[in-house]
Amino acid sequence: MMYGQGFGWGWMWFGGILLLLLILAALIVLIVRASTAGSSGVPGQVPPAPTSSARQIAEERLARGEITPDEFRQIARALDERL
């Protein structure tokens, strides 16, 4: 019996493994890039978390006219008591 001598397939396994590793590396790179992309689409950039305090939200609502100044003062007093 002639193992590895018959049709010249002796080194073909090396090329197949190399191609498989290249495809696997490309998939890993694509997955990492997709998972690190923030909402802006820039890889590695994470959008900042919103940092609105309750008082700031109340001030914005007062500015938009959603609440009256009396309601704002009541909310502010309740927030001050809570602290």
Results as ranks from 00 to 15, higher is better:
Ser52Pro: 00
Gly16Ser: 02
Leu83Ser: 15
Thr51Ala: 07
Leu30Asn: 10
Gly8Ile: 11
Gly10Ile: 00
Met12Arg: 04
Val32Arg: 10
Leu83Asp: 11
Val29Ala: 08
Gly38Val: 05
Ile17Pro: 01
Val32Phe: 12
Pro50Met: 12
Thr51Ser: 09
Leu24Pro: 00
Pro47Ser: 13
Arg64Asp: 06
Val46Leu: 05
Ser53Thr: 15
Trp11Cys: 07
Leu22His: 00
Asp80Cys: 02
Thr51His: 10
Phe72Tyr: 11
Asp70Trp: 04
Pro43Ile: 09
Ala26Asp: 03
Trp11Lys: 13
Ile23Gly: 15
Gly15Thr: 06
Pro50Phe: 10
Ile31Gln: 06
Leu21Val: 15
Gly15Asp: 04
Gly8Phe: 07
Asp80Trp: 08
Ser39Tyr: 05
Ile67Leu: 08
Trp9Val: 11
Ile31Thr: 04
Ile17Phe: 09
Gly16Glu: 10
Ala25Arg: 02
Ser40Val: 06
Ala54Ile: 12
Leu19Lys: 00
Thr51Gln: 05
Met2Val: 08
Arg73Val: 03
Gly15Cys: 03
Gly6Ala: 12
Glu60Trp: 01
Glu60Leu: 14
Gly38Gln: 09
Gln5His: 04
Val29Met: 01
Thr36Tyr: 00
Pro48Ala: 12
Gly65Cys: 13
Phe7Gln: 07
Pro43Leu: 12
Met2Trp: 01
Ile17Arg: 06
Ala78Cys: 00
Ala58Asp: 07
Glu66Arg: 10
Gln56Pro: 03
Leu30Asp: 02
Leu22Met: 14
Glu66Thr: 12
Gln5Thr: 13
Gly41His: 09
Arg55Leu: 14
Glu60Ser: 10
Met12Lys: 11
Ala63Tyr: 02
Ala49Asn: 10
Met12Asp: 15
Phe14Thr: 14
Ala63Glu: 15
Arg33Met: 15
Ala25Ile: 09
Leu20Glu: 13
Arg55Pro: 01
Leu19Ile: 13
Gln56Ile: 14
Phe7Glu: 07
Met12Gly: 07
Thr36Arg: 07
Thr51Met: 02
Arg64Gly: 04
Asp70Leu: 05
Ser53Val: 08
Thr51Gly: 02
Ile67Gln: 08
Pro48Arg: 12
Ser53Asp: 14
Ile28Ser: 08
Gly8Lys: 03
Ile67Ala: 10
Ile28Met: 12
Pro48Lys: 05
Leu62Tyr: 02
Ser52Cys: 05
Trp11His: 06
Ile57Trp: 01
Ala54Phe: 05
Gly15His: 02
Ile23Ser: 06
Ala63Phe: 00
Leu20Val: 05
Arg82Cys: 07
Gln56His: 04
Glu81Cys: 01
Ala37Gln: 14
Pro43Tyr: 06
Ala63Ser: 14
Ala34Arg: 14
Ile67Phe: 09
Met1Val: 04
Ala58Gly: 09
Ile23Lys: 02
Ser35Lys: 11
Ala34Leu: 13
Ala26Phe: 10
Arg33His: 03
Arg61Trp: 00
Ile31Ala: 11
Ala37Tyr: 03
Val32Gln: 11
Glu71Tyr: 03
Val42Asn: 06
Pro47Leu: 11
Leu79Val: 04
Glu66Gln: 13
